[in-house]
């Protein structure tokens, strides 16, 4: 049982929560995630990135988008109430070193998992430029948090309601040309990560993506989270969640994410960025 200490609504669908979890707070590193289950008997186990941690308070922060059954129910849990099950920290931590020039691209809810990584990169002495994308101004989250870290912050919205009216791949390409980053980290909807990887490929810039496959246990015992990376099957929960974006078979991964589509609620998840890119506007 883990107590909810703080809750805030960041946008229409996005929530930030601080949850009591002293052991996880102690052991976690950027890039790692937890499995949340809100009902021991019948609940689903869902993975959420640890967006931040406070060792003193013994708490972790999650930022999540209410897209389906479990995330909507999670959003209804109030401060002082409990989350029945929380397991973590899971996955391999991000490799944080002094690479030199790093571009972090966060799309939609992907900005949340990007936050600890960008922070780590900055602390390790990198120059960090951040590109954030969202459908519109209302859906843009954590701008202030990112502003504190970034040497330059570029904001894009699909509808131009804030920042540039562009897909994140446009400024990414510009930076590849003009700034020549040593590393790109992209986290967001799979289609965005796929096109970020395609954008950097011609420049040969190493590109890390963080995959959000369907998971059950998060410990390597089911294989449900598997993806093909460089022709080899990998388990995202234990081998990842971060992989070389140039090697990931995104098409297969996106298909697999739709395994239960018929049964689960409407696909709220597909943002306009996905559509725009699908329509060939990227």
């Amino acid at each position: 049982m883990n107590k909810v200490l703080y809750k805030e609504q960041l946008s229409d669908e996005v929530f930030r929560m601080r949850i009591e979890a002293p052991l996880i707070a102690q052991e976690r590193h950027p890039g790692q995630f937890v499995i949340v289950q809100i009902d021991t008997n019948y609940g689903e186990r869902i993975p959420l990135t640890i967006a931040d941690a406070d060792q003193q308070e013994g708490s972790i922060t999650i930022v999540f988008q209410a897209v389906g059954d479990t995330t909507h129910r999670l959003a209804k849990i109030e401060v002082g109430e409990y989350i029945e099950n929380l397991l973590g920290p899971l996955g391999q931590p991000t490799e944080i070193e002094r690479f030199g020039k790093v571009v972090c691209v966060g799309g939609g809810i992907g900005v949340a998992p990007m936050h600890p990584i960008a922070q780590g990169m900055k602390q390790a002495g990198n120059e960090v430029k951040i590109i954030m994308g969202a459908r519109n101004r209302d859906l843009l989250i954590m701008e202030d948090d990112m502003q504190k870290i970034a040497d330059e912050l570029i904001i894009c919205t699909d509808d131009g309601s804030y920042g540039r009216k562009d897909l994140v791949t446009v400024p990414l390409k510009e930076l590849c040309e003009s700034w020549k980053p040593d590393l790109v980290v992209a986290i967001g909807p799979p289609i965005m990560m796929k096109f970020c990887a395609e954008t950097t490929r011609p420049y040969g810039i190493h590109t890390i993506v963080s995959l959000n496959t369907i998971m059950i246990d998060g410990t390597g015992m089911c294989g449900g989270c598997r993806v093909s990376v460089g022709g080899e099957t990998k388990f995202v929960c234990v081998d990842g969640p971060e992989f070389d974006g140039h090697l990931v078979d995104f098409d297969n991964m996106m298909l697999r994410l739709g395994t239960y589509k018929e049964r689960e609620a409407e696909d709220h998840h597909q943002c306009h960025l996905d559509l725009a890119i699908k329509e060939g506007k990227a």
Binding site: L23, E27, G88, L90, T219
Partner: peptide, 9 residues
């Protein structure tokens, strides 16, 4: 429960 030895500790 919810304690993964190797990760949680």
């Amino acid at each position: 429960t919810n304690f993964l030895v190797g990760r949680t500790r």
